[in-house]
């Protein structure tokens, strides 16, 4: 009695999977190459200038003005994780229903270096790349009449 039930369950799972109703995907994304910790440790406020930092880290992702200072952001990403998607075709209702779950390990990381007018490193900040780019983005000035 157990065997027919198991076979039925297996067949149902197989049918759902073959019709692409259930898919599990493991994805990994690598973007840019992270610098070594040793290189990062060499770059300290008051001790490094712009060219030293460019030579050590290469070209940054972002360059922008921060008042009188210049801010450069380097970033890299290594993300990996599973996603599970359940999709249900609803042809008679004119669409599809789907549910996705994804978990990922580690996101983008980055370092921000800020330089004064003499191009000396004055501040350094490390963290999540999204935070470094978004939180520190200057607010747009309101339009004037």
């Amino acid at each position: 009695m157990t065997e027919p039930r198991s076979a039925l369950g297996l067949a149902a799972c197989l049918a759902l999977a073959v019709s692409s109703c259930i898919t599990g995907t493991y994805s990994r994304e690598d973007r840019q190459t992270p610098p070594s910790e040793a290189v990062l440790e060499l770059l300290q406020p008051g001790q490094s200038d712009l060219q030293t930092c460019l030579d050590a880290l290469g070209a940054p992702l972002v360059v922008r003005a921060r008042g009188e200072e210049t801010e450069l952001i380097w970033g890299w990403q290594r993300t990996g994780g599973w996603s599970l998607t359940f999709r249900l075709p609803l042809a008679d209702r004119g669409g599809d229903g789907n549910f996705s779950y994804a978990e990922s390990k580690r996101g983008g990381r980055g370092v921000t270096l800020r330089f004064d007018r003499e191009e000396q490193l004055v501040a350094r900040n490390e963290g999540r790349l999204a935070d470094l780019i978004d939180v520190q983005r200057p607010k747009a000035a309101p339009l004037e009449d």
Partner: peptide
């Protein structure tokens, strides 16, 4: 039932910095 997907993204990127006279000062 399962899939594997890998994405590898790399760039050539160059920043060139100029002074107020448009003369190159730094290259990264």
């Amino acid at each position: 039932l399962v899939g594997l997907r890998g994405v590898d993204q790399r760039s050539d990127r160059v920043w060139v910095f100029f002074d107020e006279n448009d003369v190159l000062t730094h290259v990264g």
